[in-house]
Design a binder for these strands. Structure first.
Lengths: 248, 248
DNA sequence: TATTATTTTGCAACTTTATGCAATTTTTAT
DNA sequence: ATAAAAATTGCATAAAGTTGCAAAATAATA
């Protein structure tokens, strides 16, 4: 087998599987691992693959890793714009924290007149820039991880509210496991928020769909509307539509 | 599984869920926790995640309040360091908002164990970075000017507290007119804070000394300690010393 | 074609890297 | 204050990588 042949094959395999192992290639092509390594070296020097200990990775793999300073901002913006349509003047809007909610806060139209209730300090901070909306902050002990207030006082306050709509940025959402999270206090808050709202909306980038965390917030059926960056007819969302959840 | 693959997966999970546990990752990828820790170390050294005890956090969550257009930062830092001496382990500290308080929040020693109560969203945000202090946020309607919560609920909550010390960033302080401000709601809050605290401390850059605003908070005699960036013996401060106020 | 030059390949000795384990220290939670 | 969980450190080991070199394969040229 010629060198060129081998390298073409390797390149093909890398692009196909995103990764190759030297040992594997060596066996497949019946040449020594030294030879494979030299091939990988050549290809990586031409910038066609990323050589790593034990094999190689496709280029696309590593490019994605480096540009992840702010994660999925575009997707979250898309979601935020869809969510915007649900908010109307005069509404009482209850929101959680999370970066998707922050994106939403940033794009609220200047002439919107509504009341936003939140326990999230970053969200409150962002809402405060808006000229017209009213902001109610739920007070209590501040959870440093989630940057939202948590505790009995906070939950009691939420229970006093009848919100028109509840917008939840979530950590994990799954058709069978429902809405799940990894922080007990946050879960308590979200449960209270869901219970007191006429309509419950989940904002989730598609990557979080069909993933599960440790603590259950509520079954999927408790959610009225699901917003992702995808087209509402996407296959991924079918199971949720069948549960009676409206997809936007 | 190659090291780079693992790290890419970890990075993905962190950005997806804002938090990962070493134990989970170890289980998910079938490698020892030591390996996970080394991966987390690598990633954190590249600045891609925040490594913490037990796992890692997304670094998008740990960005502080930008201190761009803050006047007289150096003076405020000086004041903050003086104020620091008044705070001891176990204390209940009630603080207002304002940039001087934010400076104080930034320099709190890491091993300080105290409880901070505040209605200021930026202050709460800054306190949230501290590893040991407890933070209680006072909830209510958020005043956009002052970025603090104001209203009956907030005042009622403050009245439930007996704080050891109250730190006030102020707008104007004068020997004859006392402490004054220009926002009615803020004044109500400050009055409540002063009433419920054993010791009242005013943090004020010298520019604000001998100035007066529209609404009175309290007479100068209600203040126990005054902190400015000046030497305590400065002429400017003599009238306040004569009123029995301790100068730092 | 024969012969020489060049490239490629595999091997052996050695170095580096990755990973897990055990002992100890640090952190965290109760 | 104490116990449990997690982190750190040092070390052992196996897998992977490197280098130099000689044999084999390929290409070039008289």
């Amino acid at each position: 087998m010629l060198k060129e042949e081998r390298q073409a094959y390797i390149l093909h395999q890398v692009n196909l599987h995103n990764k190759v192992l030297s040992s594997h290639l060596s066996e497949q092509m019946q040449v020594s691992e030294d030879t494979i390594r030299r091939d990988l070296l050549d290809l990586s020097q031409e910038g066609k693959i990323i050589k790593v200990h034990g094999g190689a990775l496709s280029n696309s793999f590593h490019q994605g890793v480096s540009s992840q300073n702010v994660y999925s901002v575009d997707e979250k913006k898309t979601i935020a714009y869809k969510a915007l349509n649900l908010i109307q003047d005069g509404m009482f809007v209850l929101t959680s924290g999370g970066t998707t909610i922050i994106e939403l806060a940033k794009i609220l139209p200047k002439d919107l007149q509504a009341t936003f209730v939140t326990a999230s300090i970053p969200a409150a901070f962002e809402y405060a820039h808006h000229p017209n909306i009213e902001i109610i902050v739920i007070g209590d002990k501040l959870s440093k991880n989630a940057k939202i207030t948590v505790g009995g006082e906070a939950i009691a306050k939420i229970q006093q509210i009848r919100a028109d709509i509840c917008l939840l940025g979530v950590n994990a959402f799954d058709a069978t496991d429902g809405l799940t999270d990894n922080d007990w206090d946050v879960v308590q808050m979200k449960q209270a928020m869901i219970k007191t709202s006429k309509k419950v909306v989940v904002l989730s980038i598609s990557e979080k769909i069909n993933s599960t965390q440790q603590i259950k917030v509520c079954p999927a059926s408790a959610i009225d509307i699901l917003i992702t960056e995808l087209d509402p007819d996407a296959d991924l969302l079918k199971p949720y539509k069948q549960l009676g959840i409206k997809i936007l």
